[in-house]
Nucleic acid binder design. Structure first.
Lengths: 339, 339
DNA sequence: TTGAAAGCGCTAACAG
DNA sequence: CTGTTAGCGCTTTCAA
C-alpha cells in the first residue's frame, strides 16, 4: 500500500484534534468555518480517505448497501446496480452484490451475509423481493430494505414501483390511435403480478375506446421467447388474425416477430407488434420493437435514496413510503398504421 | 440488530481465550483437535459470524474483491459477477462492484475506492482492463489485480483469456464441414483486439481447407447490430453472395439475420449465419443463432481464484500467470448444409 | 498448544 | 466550538 494516511496525520497537519477532523469529514455542525477549511486543505494535501472498516467498526454505519438478486435478466440487474451506485456514490456508500440461488434456501443464504457485513440497507429485486422468508430475516436482523416492483404484500415495506397498468393502457391506446381495433394480446407468466396489471391496462384501454376484447385473440404466454412464438402461431396462422399484437414483454414480442417473418407478414404494414420492457433484444431485430421502457436505473436510485435518507419505515400510522415512477413509451418501427 | 454475538461470547462458551477462537476461525495450525471442536460447536450454537470490519481493520485482509467494469454488455457483466462470487463465497469473500465511467477520468475514480475500501484484489473486464492509467493506480496502491481478456500488454499482469483464434477457426471449420466454401466474414471493431484474432482464425481455417478468402466477401463492422445489418446488405444484395456469413459477434449476426429476412433468404437453407459470444439475443431470433460461447463465468471464477490464491505475481523470472480457458461451439439452427 | 496485551482507524460520549 | 477518553471486534505480536 502506498498511502497509509490516517486521521491522525490530517489532524497533525491541520493543527486540530482527530475529533475535529472527524467532524468535518462527517459534515457535522459546530465547526468554525476557518477550521473546516484548514482541515479540508490538509485532507486534500495528504490525499486522505477515511478507512471504511474503521468507520463502520466504530460507528453505526457500514457505508455498504446490498443488492440481492436472483433475476434472470442481466440487463435488469446491471441497470439496478448502475442506478443504485449513482445515488450511493454521492454519499460515499458502496454497493455489495449478492446473487441468490432461489432454488435453494434463500433465507439461509441471506442470514450469514447480514451478520458478517452489517449493511446499512438492502435493495431487493423481483423475484426475491417477494420471498417472505428473506423479508423475515431482514426484519429480524433489523436491516432496512426497499423492494423494487414487489408483487405481494405491498404494504409490508418501502418500495419503488412503476405503473404497469397505465403503461399497458397507453401502449394499447397508441395502437388504437394508429387505427387498430382488433388488437391481440399475449399475457405474461400468471404468477407474476405484472402480468395481471398489464392485461388490466390493455383491457381497460380497449373498453374505453369502445373495442371488444376478443377472447380468442388473447393468449397465455410465460414471458419466454418460445411461449410468445407459440402464442403468435395460434394468433396469426388463420384468416381472422388481429392487425396488431401487444405482448406483455419483449421476449414474447420477439417471438411474434419471428412468426410474422415466417408467415411473410410485413411488420408493421400488415401486423404491428408491441412489447414491454425495452430489453436489449428490442433493438437487435428488424424492424426495431416498439415497447415500454421501465426506468430501472431511476427506480434503483430512488430505492437507494430511500435507504440513505432513512425513510424506509412507515411514518405515523401510514404505510411505508412507496415511490411510483414514470415509464416511457418507446415508439420504434414495429408499430404503424394498417396497410 | 438481533444478534450481537462477538468472539468473546464464543470464547466464554467454549472456555478458551478469544485468540484461540480466532485461530480456529482462521484455520490456523497449533490448536488441539479437542479444543477446535469445542470452539466450532460454540460458534454453531451461538450462530456466530465474525464481523468483517473488525477483521479487516485488525488484520491484513478486507475480505472484499472488487469488480471494475465499464462494459456495455449487461450479460457479460452479470456473468462475471456470478462467476467471481461463486469462487469468493468459498472463502468468505464478498464482491464489491464499481462501474466506471470511461468517458471521464477513470483513474481518478479508481483511486479513492482503493483508499477507502482496502480491497484484497480487483478483477478488471474489457475495456477497462486495457486502460493503462487504471493499471498504474492499482500498481501504485499495491492492489493485486487480474485482467479478463486483455488486449494489450499481456505480460503486464495476471490474466484469464479465451482462445479467440481457435474459436473462430473452429466455427469456420464447422461451416466448411457443412459444405460451404464461400463464407463471408464481418469483422469487428478495429480497436478491439478480439476483432483481429477472430479474423485471423477465420482466415486460417479458410486457407487450411483450401478455400480462398474473397476480399469482397469480407466486410468491416463495428460490433453493432446496425453495422452488421449494413455489412449484410452489401454482402447479400447481389447475385454472387456467399452461402454463409460468419459475423464477429452476435449483434452483427442478428443484423445479418434481419437482412436475410428482408431479402427472403431462408436461414439456413439459403444462407447460414454464425455469430460469436452467445448473447441472450442469440436465442430470441428464429432460427436461433449458431455461435461461440465464451466461458465468462468460469473465466471470472478463475480470476477470483488467482486473486484468492495470491498468485498474481510473476514467479521467478517468468511472466505473470495467465489462464487460457476453453470456449464452446454452440450449434443451433442458423447454420446448416446448403440447399 | 494457549493466552494477555496492544493496537488497527475511526466514531461516540462527554467534558471543557 | 473543540478536545479527551473510551471503546467497536477482531488480529497480531510476544510470552508462557
Amino acid at each position: 500500500m502506498s498511502s497509509k494516511v490516517t486521521i491522525h496525520e490530517v489532524a497533525r497537519l491541520s493543527g486540530v484534534s482527530i475529533k475535529t477532523v472527524s467532524r468535518v469529514l462527517n459534515r457535522e455542525p459546530n465547526v468554525k468555518n476557518d477550521t473546516r477549511v484548514r482541515v479540508q486543505e490538509a485532507v486534500a494535501a495528504l490525499n486522505y480517505r477515511p478507512n471504511i472498516s474503521a468507520r463502520s467498526l466504530a460507528g453505526s454505519k457500514a457505508y455498504l448497501i446490498g443488492v440481492f438478486f436472483d433475476n434472470p435478466s442481466p440487463a435488469y440487474v446491471t441497470d439496478v446496480q448502475l442506478g443504485a451506485i449513482a445515488r450511493c456514490r454521492e454519499e460515499g456508500y458502496h454497493l455489495i452484490v449478492e446473487p441468490l440461488d432461489s432454488t435453494g434456501d434463500v433465507a439461509a443464504q441471506v442470514e450469514p451475509m447480514l451478520h458478517t457485513l452489517r449493511m446499512d440497507g438492502v435493495i431487493l429485486t423481483p423475484p426475491v423481493c417477494d420471498n417472505a422468508a428473506v423479508l423475515d430475516v431482514l426484519e429480524a436482523e433489523g436491516v432496512p430494505y426497499v423492494r423494487l416492483s414487489p408483487d405481494q404484500d405491498l404494504g409490508r415495506s418501502a418500495s419503488v414501483r412503476m405503473d404497469d397498468v397505465r403503461a399497458a393502457y397507453e401502449m394499447t391506446a397508441h395502437l388504437i390511435s394508429l387505427g387498430h381495433t382488433d388488437i391481440g394480446f399475449i399475457k405474461g407468466h400468471p404468477e407474476h403480478g405484472a402480468s395481471h396489471l398489464r392485461y388490466e391496462g390493455y383491457a381497460a384501454a380497449m373498453k374505453e375506446h369502445g373495442h371488444a376484447v376478443r377472447e380468442d385473440h388473447v393468449e397465455q404466454g410465460w414471458f419466454s421467447f418460445r411461449s410468445g412464438f407459440e402464442a403468435a402461431e395460434r394468433l396469426l396462422d388463420r384468416p381472422d388474425r388481429p392487425t396488431a399484437i401487444f405482448a406483455s414483454n419483449d421476449d414474447m414480442a420477439l417471438g411474434v416477430m419471428a412468426v410474422a417473418n415466417r408467415l411473410r407478414l410485413e411488420v408493421p404494414q400488415t401486423l404491428s407488434v408491441a412489447g414491454f420492457d425495452d430489453t436489449p433484444g428490442a433493438k437487435v431485430v428488424w424492424p426495431q420493437l416498439t415497447t415500454v421502457r421501465q426506468p430501472i436505473q431511476a427506480m434503483a436510485a430512488a430505492a437507494a435514496d430511500l435507504l440513505l435518507g432513512g425513510a424506509t419505515q412507515a411514518e405515523g400510522d401510514g404505510a411505508p413510503p412507496s415511490r411510483l415512477l414514470d415509464f416511457e413509451l418507446v415508439v420504434r418501427e414495429s408499430t404503424g398504421p394498417i396497410g
